[in-house]
Computed example of a mutant assay.
Amino acid sequence: MTASATIQTLSGDDSFAAYVARPEGEAMAAIVVIQEIFGVNAGIRRKCDLLAEQGYLAVAPDLFWRIEPGIELDPDIAPEMQRGLDLMGEFDQDEGIRDIEATIRWARGEIGGGKVGAVGYCLGGRLAFMTAARTDVDATVGYYAVGIPDLLREAHAIAHPLLLHIPTADGFVDAAAQRAMHEGLDDHPKVTLYDYEGLDHGFATQFGERRDEEGAQTADARTEAFFAEHLAK
């Protein structure tokens, strides 16, 4: 079952929308799905639907609401890809983490205080790392996260399991950045990194030209097993 929800900000003086997918029975946990630079589009909503089919309450907050509510972009359309890149520059990531934290609290309330995870893609992968370091989320996954070397100073604060999927031919994350991620995180007891040889940014997108079917299925299977281990009751 899918619906929309209104979530209060941490300060309680404003609110933002979120897409919600619920399982048929009782949710075994909740997962916050963190958008790419393209908003809560059809691909992100489908990610939520698939998680609901696995038994989770899945919620995707509209993190761009302060810029413009309801943004939905298609990365296969050049002007919309550029709009997404522009939005990343306008977006306040610290505010975004606070909105994710508000969403975690909302989701935890919806499932009676149970465990809440998070999964993010691209910009959302970066925000997933920040969520793992700055909130009480129970388990987190990031796909093709951008700019992680700039955040490694926060790695000491990661107290719960974090999984990162790293495509080696990522056009937005060069070899030096990937090397820095491994050097900074391989020895972290809570962090697991998987490399995907020859795959590019966006390989696990649900729809569109960027998807690599074999790579996406491999990464998603690892994510499913990770959440089953760390979130399921």
Rank of each mutant, 00 (worst) to 15 (best):
A27N: 05
T168H: 10
H230Q: 02
F38W: 09
I104Y: 03
G120Q: 07
A177W: 00
H165T: 04
M81F: 15
F172I: 10
H182V: 02
V173Y: 05
L152F: 09
A175K: 09
H230E: 03
P79V: 10
R45Y: 02
L152C: 10
G43A: 14
R153F: 13
T192V: 12
H230T: 01
M1R: 06
P161E: 02
P61S: 06
H230D: 00
K233Y: 07
R153L: 10
Y56G: 05
Q217C: 03
E224A: 15
D92C: 08
T140L: 05
A17S: 14
T140H: 06
A176T: 12
G84T: 05
K190E: 14
F203W: 09
G70K: 10
F16Q: 00
E224S: 14
G25C: 08
H156Y: 11
Q35I: 03
Q206S: 12
K190L: 07
V33M: 05
G12A: 14
D92K: 06
R210W: 14
E197Y: 01
G84C: 08
E213N: 08
N41Y: 07
M28R: 15
L10K: 11
E24I: 03
G114Y: 06
A132K: 04
D150E: 14
E110H: 09
Q217R: 14
G89V: 02
D187H: 13
R83T: 13
K115F: 11
I97H: 04
E53H: 08
V40A: 11
I44P: 03
F38N: 02
A176R: 07
A155D: 03
F16D: 03
Y143M: 03
Y19K: 02
D220A: 09
H188M: 10
G124D: 06
H201L: 10
A102N: 06
A52F: 02
P167L: 11
A60E: 11
L51N: 03
L164S: 03
D150G: 13
L73Q: 08
A139C: 06
H182F: 13
D187S: 13
E197H: 08
D99W: 00
W106H: 12
A159W: 02
I31R: 04
F226Y: 09
Q217V: 12
E209S: 14
Q217M: 13
D212V: 04
G125K: 04
F91R: 00
D150S: 14
Y56H: 11
F91P: 06
T140E: 01
D62M: 07
E24L: 11
G120P: 07
F38P: 04
A21N: 05
I166H: 01
A42W: 04
D94P: 00
H156A: 15
P189L: 09
D94L: 01
L199R: 08
A221C: 05
E72T: 13
D150R: 12
L63Q: 00
Q93A: 15
L87T: 02
E101C: 04
F38H: 04
A5W: 01
M130K: 08
V119P: 00
T223I: 02
F38Y: 14
G124E: 06
M88P: 00
Q178R: 14
